[in-house]
Design a protein around this nucleic acid. Structure first.
Lengths: 223, 223
DNA sequence: CAGGTTTCGTATCGATCACTATGGATGATT
DNA sequence: AATCATCCATAGTGATCGATACGAAACCTG
């Protein structure tokens, strides 16, 4: 995973690290950090407590490694969308529609681990809640950075308040995460995303970037 | 509060029920249902365990009563906005701007208890998570109902998909709740709300209802 | 004042929490 | 084969969880 330790001898590990970490990640994703007990982890990972602690130090470290793995395996769409060589409007569109898909994958917990993991926490788990908040802030900062780039090359209106619009987009994604947890389908999330994308169309995307999406991205949802 | 029990004798209660319930509500609001321990409640409410259990049955009942009290004392803005005799656009505007204020009140936990209370939960607390989900669904249904009324009187475009737009608005409010928990100020939340309100302006609120707000409600945020 | 009823304070219940001590098993190294 | 390092399984650690047993105290009714 992360620490490429060289086992210069000793009994080999009898289970797959990443597979165990995946099981833990899904459990944290579904129930959150504190509500996921070691007994649940033990059963889902198919391991004994000493196996878990020997491999992942403690519950908090296990959770942090699960966060890293989630970031690597589940939400690559975000970085891809924001770094793709496409107009800003298209990048944002990919971001929101990618979230619609990622937050409602069949067989996976609904929503985003960074939101569900510890929105509220006990005082003992405040550090975990802060870390998740940092992930959310980083997402928002990534959006803001992309918007600033777009504005710099004339892709967006000069008067656009980058920070405020980034906060709106991050907020919409957070809202989609909760709607997904409440059972929203990928179609419903896509509709929500496209309604939000309509805010892009107001000030006029004078240069039409992707004609095939204009009709969708620029209108209210219709029955 | 709710059960108007007649104490036909017996030692009188030595504390104020609503004051104790308020303390519990704020604690649940801040830390969520499961992460709030009896020890924390005991200290915040200034009571002993038997006092709490005698007055509120158990932790789950206490939480449900806190939900009712929260609904009554903290988010009256929502019902007021949706039932006010004003155009639909103005009602939605009051709803979102009211949320911006309610989710960032000084001295209160950020965001909405219905979101923070138990977004993720252990299997034992699934009933609580479901109840909070029902509150969120009811909010969305209330918005949809108001939109349907508006469309029926020609206040909204006939082609508008009420359910989809209600889901967008509910999602934005949920997103605002998370942004508030992450420390967003009331101004930032207002900007977020007004950006979302811009989606209303696209299809054209042909009948200008409140001229003094049009400039704000219909534009992207500006620096 | 006596009987009934409810709440009070004190002390604590069993269950579950995250976590670990201990010693045998299994591999690489020499 | 001898040594060493690591992981395995069994069993159990103290702490905290939500919730109570108990008897004294405080009120109303008769």
């Amino acid at each position: 995973m992360d620490d490429l330790e060289k086992p210069r001898g000793g009994r080999p590990r009898a289970f797959d690290l990443d597979r165990a970490l995946d099981a833990a990640m899904h459990l944290f994703w579904e129930h959150g950090y504190e509500a996921t007990s070691l007994a649940m982890l033990r059963e889902a990972m198919g391991l004994t407590p000493p196996q878990i602690y020997n491999a992942f130090t403690d519950k908090e470290t296990l959770f942090r490694k699960a966060l890293t793995r989630y970031h690597q395996t589940e939400i690559g769409f975000a970085l891809e969308a924001l770094s793709a060589p496409v107009p800003t409007g298209e990048a944002i569109r990919r971001l929101l529609l990618g979230a619609a898909e990622a937050y409602s994958r069949p067989g996976k917990p609904g929503g985003c681990l960074f939101v569900s993991g510890a929105l509220a926490a006990s005082p003992q788990a405040q550090a975990i809640a802060d870390e998740l908040k940092a992930y959310r802030k980083a997402s928002e900062a990534g959006i803001a950075e992309r918007l600033a780039q777009g504005r710099a090359i004339g892709d967006l209106p000069e008067g656009l308040a980058v920070e405020g619009f980034a906060k709106f987009l991050a907020g919409v994604m957070n809202g989609m995460s909760i709607q997904a947890r409440d059972g929203a389908s990928v179609e419903e999330l896509r509709t929500l995303a496209q309604t939000a994308l309509a805010a892009f169309a107001i000030e006029g995307q004078k240069q039409a970037h992707h004609p095939r999406n204009e009709a969708d991205a620029g209108s209210l949802p219709r029955g």
